[in-house]
């Protein structure tokens, strides 16, 4: 049985800049893995390649043994990879519920003609989609917000709606891009619980980019560390904490003495 996600020698170049350089990441089904690194290390760029927003210059991305390299974002989504965005990208003027319904579009199960005449499976399937979306919202404690425009929610809840919307695509692998950004410590603690609960309830694998070390160290089973597009360390949280290269990357130092925390 091959790993759920197997990234090998992943590289992308923007002009002369090598943003991500020969990165290997392997994730087994059910794991909760962290991807950390200083600003500009190439973490989000990795996510963008994983979800087809950018096409890698070289290297392979395999999902359950099948190469998904070069597929369009919507195709990768249908293969079972969903993501959230660092700089929240909700469908602002649509309601929270509608945000999730967009993710359920693939499984609508009725034809255009049925929709236009309101016949056949249309009514029943629409109802089922709504039920499913409400269920996800309930699990994340957002059901009372279902009919509000997404943009009217407080920041922390918008981050949660992002997660709910990604979950609605029924992913095998969930990519979370800095879900705790802008949250206070108590909200972050709640988020940690939520992520663990989601993993259990939805039976999915999670890859998490995060700056908040307390969150990553607390919930991730394994961690990859990127710096300047290179993978500099990987292992269990305790190992990462003690790794001299990681400490150096985070505290600056190095040859140039550059600060980039």
């Amino acid at each position: 049985m091959s790993a759920l996600l197997d990234i090998a020698a992943l590289t992308i170049r923007f002009g002369g800049l090598v943003a991500v350089n020969r990165v290997d990441i392997k994730i087994e089904k059910g794991e909760l893995v962290g991807l950390i690194g200083p600003n500009g290390a190439g973490k989000t760029t990795c996510f963008n390649m994983l979800t087809g927003v950018y096409e890698p210059t070289s290297g392979t991305i395999c999902l359950e043994g099948k190469n998904i390299n070069g597929l369009a974002p919507h195709q990768i989504c249908s293969k079972g990879v969903a993501r959230t965005f660092q700089n929240i990208r909700l469908f602002k003027s649509m309601t929270v519920l509608e945000n999730l319904l967009v993710s359920l579009h693939r499984e609508r199960g009725y034809s255009l003609a049925e929709a236009l005449f309101g016949l056949g499976r249309f009514g029943k399937r629409e109802q089922e989609m709504r039920t499913k979306a409400m269920e996800i919202l309930r699990m994340l404690g957002l059901d009372h917000r279902a009919h509000l425009p997404a943009s009217s929610l407080p920041y922390g809840e918008q981050r949660k709606v992002e997660i709910a919307r990604a979950l609605a695509t029924s992913p095998k692998l969930l990519l979370l891009d800095e879900p705790a950004a802008g949250m206070n410590p108590s909200e972050t603690a709640q988020l940690a619980k939520d992520i663990q609960k989601i993993r259990k309830d939805f039976d999915i694998t999670v890859l998490l980019i995060e700056h908040d070390m307390s969150l990553v160290m607390k919930i991730c089973e394994r961690i990859y560390v990127l710096d300047y597009g290179q993978l500099i360390a990987q292992g269990k949280p305790e190992e990462i904490k003690r790794d001299p290269r990681v400490i150096e990357a985070y505290l600056g130092g190095g040859l140039g003495g550059e600060q980039h925390a």
Binding site: T51, A72, P73, H74, C77, F85, R89, F91
Partner: peptide
Amino acid sequence: IAARSMGI
């Protein structure tokens, strides 16, 4: 971009 990533 979000629409694309949600499978549209």
